[in-house]
Design a protein around this nucleic acid. Structure first.
Lengths: 111, 111
DNA sequence: TTGTCATGTAGGAAAAATCCTACATATAGT
DNA sequence: ACTATATGTAGGATTTTTCCTACATGACAA
């Protein structure tokens, strides 16, 4: 739930790759996900645990498999966190644009 | 420049707090930023280095001070990274909304 | 029931992050 | 030149993360 765990979970390239696979290919059993990594299966399982604790994936037991699926809600917290920075970014762009316009007004072709 | 460094930089609460201070209060010298933390000044300095390496802050030497300012461009990379997940999220919401509508249509008041 | 398959967990080694104190550097003021 | 101030860097202790192999669990299949 806490954004701390979400940011921490996203810090690992392996975990972001897991999210990408679940996004692009849909829910999959843990083993099939692990096959795609140059890493032992238990290690991938631990990464899945971190993602689970952050609320970024959920599992459904299906026989002896466990299907993992993407749970995007916590990512929307990240998006909200970004909001104020994006406003700041836009103001910067707007200021730059204004500056460029003024330079163009001044540009009478002289030198 | 790589998104890896940006995600890693954001993983620390102390570094996110630094970004927040720079956003809400504008550029400040390193020492003034450090005062706000329950942590030694050199440690804050190291956090600033991580943010600098990720391109999230920039410094301007002003006499013997170093003014740090927010550099939001890398955060826009993060926003772009979130894009596909946000689409996925919206589709989920839309599906839920449709489902609720159908349930309402079925709801003839019986039972 | 016995064996097999999919998966998680324990325990530990190695690497990385975090935080500290001491020191180095560079600028400003006297 | 000397001192004070603002800051970064070195070196090291401690904690956390990451990854491994070995083992535990729980469901299916013969």
């Amino acid at each position: 739930m806490s954004a701390d765990h979400v940011f921490a979970a996203l810090a690992s390239p392996a975990r972001r790759e897991l999210l990408r696979l679940l996004l692009e290919e849909g829910g999959q059993p843990a083993g099939r996900l692990a096959e795609r990594f140059d890493m032992s299966r238990p290690s991938v399982s631990e990464h899945l645990k971190v993602l689970r604790d952050a609320g970024l994936v959920a599992e459904t037991r299906k026989g002896r498999e466990r299907l993992y699926r993407l749970e995007p809600a916590p990512l929307m917290e990240i998006r909200d966190w970004l909001g104020p920075y994006e406003r700041f970014w836009r103001e910067k762009l707007a200021a730059l644009s204004t500056l460029l316009d003024e330079m163009e007004d001044d540009d009478d072709g002289s030198r």
